[in-house]
Amino acid sequence: MDFFKLFEASLPALLAGLVLTLKIISVGIIVAVIIGLVLGIINVGHNKILKLIAKLYIDLVRGTPLLVQVFFIYFGLPSVLNFKLDAMLAGIIAIGINASAYISEIIRAGIKSIDSGQMEAARSLGLPYGVSMRKVILPQAFKRMIPPLVNQFIISLKDTSILSSIGVIELTSSGQIIIASSFKAFQVWIMVGILYFMVIEILTLLSSRLERWVS
């Protein structure tokens, strides 16, 4: 009985945290996909300088922990450049940049997986590279990118819990606050876990629908 009372009492705060988590991840993932698409296309292209910059970016992001990136963006940059950054905005930027490195690799691999004959056929008709990419290659590659993209989405969603460390009151942080006043760590972490789990289950379901729909 105790559990249900606690559940009822905690739910509004936890849901508010969940909503913030979803806000951060939805904006963050859009940022990530845009940067990732640009980097991915640079990486299958032939411009050596751009490729070098893209490689540097991807290696740096993948080679450092997300928590370090979050601290760097929230504490590091503002301290030397003399500006104030909202914690939630810093979180969105960090999640977006972090996911973009992985997404760019997903996009690169998806494009590379399309038979080179497709590009050759498009180009042999006289179509420019960009049009061939947009009309022929990317639509085919996108289908193959769906499963790994959803996977990255799920990883990044869970990664938002790290933002509790800079005071963003997202789902994990909400749990911590409730525990601080109720001392019911076991029950609250189970509730937090269930909420994450439910969202991710729904996402998984939607993604398999999407996969079936495009094929």
Binding site: R123, S124, G126, Q140
Partner: peptide
């Protein structure tokens, strides 16, 4: 691109666009 407009090419593996 201009030159290619004037040269049709047919490949061994067809290379039709499945999308």
């Amino acid at each position: 691109n201009k030159i290619r407009e004037n040269i049709g090419m047919v490949f061994q593996s067809f290379n039709l666009f499945p999308n």
